[in-house]
Design a protein around this nucleic acid. Structure first.
Length: 445
RNA sequence: CGGGGCAUGGCGCAGUCUGGUAGCGCACCUGUUUUGGGAACAGGGGGUCGCAGGUUCGAAUCCUGCUGCCCCGACCA
């Protein structure tokens, strides 16, 4: 993609409303634009990141056996009356009326709707286990939206819903999502820390928040340092096998958010292992049994022919928030540093002297060879000064910068800079291509 | 929902106290010279000063009401 033909509205100065680094950088890098309190447009660069995040989420959900569908944003109030939540949900729910004065709402979540879909079609335990998910916009009319897309009113959510015959099977479904979440966040370049969370009226231990440690996190969290170095289950893990040992391993070390914090248990840890920090909640999974299936009549016939309400769980990831969390976790004074897996483009190509025949020809050649190699590239072919180009590319944080200047081009050489480390190296174009293929070869997982 | 603050061109701001032709920096457009770390010069375009009333010969500025947005706290992916 040539920058002269792209839409990348970079801001040199920071809009005054942006307080935290991810919000500042997303505005400055032209990723998002605010439309109203807690409501954002995603501009092309941001959209590319969001798409990559969603793609990884899909891959890991699918790998775990979940099945994607798509439910609408607008729901009928009647559905929510069945579960009793229409009156309970309060002012966070955006209620609207259509032209026939029917009561509708912009969905803050989809338990009711998925339960309705399930009960309409599933009759037998033999269709279980089932896990259905979608990635769809949600709206929660937050009292105080803030921090850009970190806490917005309209936000994207991947929400999955599992259906099982009994609690043992539901636990297995929970464990599959638990492992899928570890893998998903790992692929974003993040270190996920599962923390025991409030599990509501059902009780039990089946509710975890996935937390990313960050100074700008919204909640106080406490955990054992060991959790930051635990091995992430590999891509070839068998989701049909018993995953309980992995979940056990990950939930044994101390980890709790503020509300579940047990100072005594925490103090019992060796001081070098204690982490008291702030965290960003990027995912939340929980089991809620028959809370919806019972009132809404989502039942299946068991092996004995008797109908029983299904046991359900729900599993959420906020992709829009994840984008902000990645930036919180990976940036420096100059701008964003994208992990390869979610970078909007793989390579930044800087033509330091657009209009110079040698530079232009070399850049065109590199652009084409990158394309053939399956690598995406943002090619700064503007006539801006070198300094401005470096600043822009550092700001938007693509993993690798390829610098083509008149001196090097005359000698058939380019410079390659790794954004994360700042390392620079001069090489031939052939050498560059070999280097890039090595760099990005393993980026698939 | 309680407390605080802001609203002037795309972004950042001055001007408001003390009413008198709407300004600055960046960005943008044209031209020239430039080109290896946010270029220089010259010329140019763009603003119902958040909205509605009021006071006044005259309102960005004073008065009243409203709206939007941000920050701090209590709640949430």
């Amino acid at each position: 993609m040539r920058l002269t033909r792209y839409f990348l509205p970079i801001l040199r100065e920071t809009p005054k409303e942006a307080e935290i680094v991810s919000h500042r950088l997303m505005l400055r890098a032209g990723m998002i634009r605010q439309q109203a309190a807690g409501i954002y447009s995603w501009l092309p660069l941001g959209k590319r990141v969001l798409d990559k995040v969603n793609r990884i989420i899909r891959e890991e959900q699918d790998r775990s056996g979940a099945i994607e569908l798509l439910m609408p944003t607008i729901q009928s109030a009647d559905l929510w009356r069945e579960s009793g939540r229409y009156d309970d949900y309060g002012k966070e729910m955006l209620r609207i009326e259509d032209r026939h004065e029917r009561e509708m709402l912009f969905g803050p979540t989809n338990e009711e709707m998925i339960t309705e879909i399930f009960r309409a079609s599933v009759r037998s335990y033999r269709d279980l286990p089932l896990n259905l998910y979608h990635i769809q916009w949600k709206f929660r009319d937050e009292v105080r939206p803030r921090f850009g897309v970190m806490r917005s009113r309209e936000f994207l959510m991947k929400d999955a819903y599992s259906f099982d015959l009994d609690i043992e099977a539901a636990r297995a479904a929970y464990n599959r999502m638990f492992v899928a979440y570890l893998r998903t966040f790992h692929r974003f370049g993040l270190k996920p820390v599962p923390m025991r969370a409030e599990s509501g009226p059902i009780g039990g231990d089946m509710s975890h928040e996935f937390i990313i440690l960050a100074e700008t996190g919204e909640s106080e969290v406490y955990c054992d340092r060991a959790l930051l170095d635990m091995p992430i289950p590999s891509a070839d893990i068998d989701f049909r096998s018993d995953l309980a040992p992995i979940v056990e391993e990950w939930t044994t070390p101390y980890a709790a958010t503020d509300e579940k914090h047990d100072p005594a248990a925490f103090e019992a840890l060796d001081e070098s292992r204690r982490i008291a920090a702030r965290g960003i909640e990027v995912g939340h999974i929980f089991y809620f049994g028959t809370k919806y299936s019972e009132p809404m009549g989502a039942v299946v016939a068991g092996p004995d022919g008797v109908e029983v309400p299904v046991h359900m769980g729900s599993y959420g990831i906020g992709p829009t928030r994840v984008v902000a969390a990645i930036i919180e976790a990976s940036h420096d004074d100059d701008g964003i540093i994208w992990p390869k897996s979610v970078a909007p483009f793989d390579v930044a190509l800087l033509n330091l002297k657009a209009g110079d025949q040698t530079c232009d020809a070399m850049c065109a050649d590199i652009e084409q060879r990158l394309d053939s190699a399956g690598l995406s590239c943002l090619h700064d072919d503007t006539d801006a000064r070198a300094g401005a180009k470096f600043a822009t590319m550092d700001l938007i944080g693509l993993p690798v910068q390829v610098i083509v200047g008149p001196r090097g081009a005359a000698a058939g050489e380019v410079e390659m800079k790794v954004r994360a480390t700042g390392e620079r190296e001069t090489m031939s174009v052939d050498g560059l291509m070999a280097m890039l293929q090595a760099q990005f070869g393993d980026a698939a997982s």
